[in-house]
Amino acid sequence: MFGIQSQCNIEFDEEYYDLESYQGSIPRWCPGCGDNAILTAVQKLCRDEQLPLEKTVFVSGIGCSSRFPHYMKTYGFHGLHGRALPVAQGVKIRRPDLHVFVNMGDGDCCSIGTAHWIHAVRYNMKIVAMLHDNEIYGLTKMQASPTSPQGLKTNTTPTGAYLRPLNPLSVTLGISNVSFVANVAEWIPEAMNKVIAEAFHHPGFAFIRIMQRCPHFTPRLFDPFITDPSKLLMLSHENGIQFSDGISKVYKSQMEHDPSDMQRARELVEMTDQMPIGILYRNPEVPRYDELRKRQRIYSMDMRKAALETEFAKFAVEPVTERNGK
């Protein structure tokens, strides 16, 4: 309609992409920031899938995590605070052939962008959304975020955060039309790599919450999980992901969880003593907005013209002629 053609006829030589091919500018995150691990995991996915640079888009909001597109050599879109998901949906609806990834922080997704997050899940377009959840506002120097644990002392909560934190997983699992929810930790690369790969192959909206350490403002926040690996409950299933022996040795508490079991997934994310790691819910059958709105019939140019003309004819004013003029 607007003369945009997604199929380009120029033929390129076949190219092999290695990790370096995806490396944009040098990351300026703090040393030890969990974002670096997420960047590596995503670059590995791109290499493994051999995603063409020009067919891949990374969209982000505002925050530490949202520096992400700058560090990828693919297309990037550093958007507005909280509005990464609508931007990504805008890209995807017009260019379904592109691989769209979204990187957002907990302030981005769970505070100012909550409305967009809920409706992006409901629209279920094929996007991989990564929530870099460090449970703090890092870029503005340590203010409480909606996911900050109760009692956390920050600059805006000097006596400790008042409320119980928002649980991004239970929220997402409660939205109608949800199709893929996973939880990973940035310090377990194997689980993260596998989950991101599964998310990439999921036909709809894949939401991954990544627990991410902020070495500067909340360095000890995830220590309970790191010092006591049994607090992480590794979810494996033949329809989900399987862990290697090395991982199984360290993370002894494992569990078979069928990702199609929504009820069980909701119970798992509400656990207080353990944190599930892996794919919580996956249903590839959920209808997708971009699929549903596609025209089922092919319209010729004449048919379009005729349709337009009937539409305009409703507002047409009959010109004053000698015959009907009064």
């Binding site: 909280g82 100012i112 909550t114 120097k141 203010q143 600059n155 805006t156 909560t157 006596t159």
Partner: peptide, 24 residues
């Protein structure tokens, strides 16, 4: 932000209200 941070410290002492809203 520093102005808000100072308010977060002093307002509870003055029997006031400080709220970090979810957005502007």
């Amino acid at each position: 932000t520093e102005g808000a941070e100072l308010m977060a410290k002093i307002l509870p002492e003055l029997n006031g209200v400080f709220v970090q809203a979810v957005s502007e």
